[in-house]
Amino acid sequence: MALLTLTVNGKVVSRDVAPQTLLSEFIRETLRLTGTHVGCDTGQCGACTVHLDGRAVKSCVMLASQAGGAALTTIEGVAAADGTLHPMQVAFNECHGLQCGFCTPGMVMSAIDLVKHHPCGSDAEIREGLEGNFCRCTGYQNIVKAVAQAAKAMA
């Protein structure tokens, strides 16, 4: 066990973690932030995507200890402190970009990163940018629509 200190959704957190603990396990089991989901444990489905120092990472394929000193944002930290939803969350709701909701947290985290760091001029760019996240329910059509709408709102 070693002491891990990092910022989680704006608050400094210190916990003892075993060296083999995955970041996803740390988030779900140690911090009990269960909005981050695990759909595959091999880094392909993207349900576990969180932001580390402002960039999207798949938390099931990195160790918690690698996040020492970093700023971690999970889906629970995306809305404003007063509960106002992020434009991406609003767009997913308005465009029906989610059904069962399981892939949604990871999809929203990836989509926010995508819009922040890449031009989302066309549907094709959005589709390529979301290639790392599976959704089995929506056929992606309304997710693409939501990301395009949020990109305008975030511009």
Partner: peptide
């Protein structure tokens, strides 16, 4: 009417309760 979904808020904010949660 295309009423937006009432269940979305919990899923979009990480408050869904799935079995493993």
């Amino acid at each position: 009417q295309s009423v937006v979904r009432r269940e979305d808020h919990r899923f979009l904010t990480g408050r869904g309760q799935y079995t493993d949660d």
